[in-house]
Nucleic acid binder design. Structure first.
Lengths: 205, 205
DNA sequence: TTAAAAAATGAACATTGTTCAAAAATAAAA
DNA sequence: TTTTATTTTTGAACAATGTTCATTTTTTAA
């Protein structure tokens, strides 16, 4: 191993350290409430160093948003072993909501904040690979459901988007505290009453 | 009319002027990109004056979020004349999406931003009247649908929340630019392909 | 041991929301 | 009308933020 190799590894390590510190603070005190100085303090480096490794705050948020998608992938792992696509779709909905509620700041970053998308636009990058891949996974399962004679009369792409919108809408309203006027039976609102109604709906399609 | 009355009227007028200026700038250049100084400049007053009429930026955002709900109410007006609840529900979905797409910054403020809710919390106000009222209107229509034997096997409150989540989810993903990976047929994506699929879904419930 | 290259630093800048003593404008009193 | 009291408006000043960059420190190569 050359010195250049080690340097590259160290560079990568420090980049990860910054991201790890940032994520910790984001979860602890919220993304908006976390400053670059906070992040630098957290890992005992100076502000300037953070800017050596990241172009700006959006770059940090974008990288962390990608990490969020990796983590969602981890949640989704257990789905691979489910043969029946309808059963997989049901579980997928549950896991999606669970992930959103257990990782609210990360979910917000992945699907709501402007920063990650702004970063892509700034880099002249039209595509949003993380989202497209996840959407593709859902679409594949819906496709298999349709092959088994479910969802008659629906079109794959828009229907997939509807299912995504349904669970995303729930999570979004909950995370942004717009569910105050909704009277649920269960204390753990979305994950029980919401999810149950979601099950009823896809059953009828 | 006493002097005190006139003063009260003038005070109210200036408050409205500030809100009007703020709204104009929000729509023109985005909420995050608009500063208090911008708003003050827009209406030819000083920064300090803005703070005489509003406690802080959140107070402006909250009042503007309320105005947004009034405007949504304006969009909803034509629904009153529709007798058939199912037909009314369908039109309601269309108008909701239309409002969201035509007033993206306002929609964001009403249903996504933290500011209006933070303002309520700061005032020790637990309730979110604007949202609860709008949710109530949707719930009433869904209730009438159920009385006409639609939506068998569903529960009013959670089902209403599902329908809201569905349209909100679509609008949210579109406004926050998360629909890049979804291939629609129509150029006006959500309002046609999305809405059509929404129609198919509520038809089957 | 020394010179060159790389990495880390933190003071400095522009911009933000916010405050508040002072100034200006208005109303009430003499 | 003139003076006093009250209300309204002002903008300089403050702390906090994202960001930059000349300087210092550390590491590598000679």
């Amino acid at each position: 191993m050359s010195v250049a190799d080690r340097k590259a590894r160290e560079k990568e390590a420090l980049k990860m350290l910054i991201l790890k510190g940032a994520k910790k603070l984001f979860i602890e005190k919220g993304i908006e409430q976390t400053t670059i100085r906070n992040i630098a303090d957290e890992i005992d480096y100076s502000v300037g160093t953070v800017y050596v490794y990241f172009k700006d705050k959006n770059a940090i948020l974008h990288d962390l948003h990608s990490i969020g998608f990796q983590e969602l992938g981890g949640y989704f792992k257990e789905l691979f072993s489910i043969e029946d696509p309808m059963e997989r779709l049901r579980k997928m909905g549950f896991i999606y909501i669970k992930f959103a509620l257990e990782n609210q700041e990360m979910y917000d970053l992945m699907f709501n904040l402007k920063a990650p998308i702004e970063f892509l636009t700034n880099c002249d990058n039209e595509d949003w690979n993380e989202g497209t891949t996840t959407f593709g996974a859902l679409k594949e399962t819906v496709h298999q459901c349709m092959q088994k004679e479910h969802f008659k009369g629906h079109t794959l792409e828009p229907l997939t988007f509807m299912i995504w919108s349904l669970v995303h809408g729930m999570c979004c309203l909950e995370i942004r505290q717009r569910t105050k006027g909704v009277k649920f039976n269960n204390p753990d609102t979305i994950l029980y009453d919401g999810y149950n109604e979601f099950l009823k709906i896809i059953e009828k399609l």
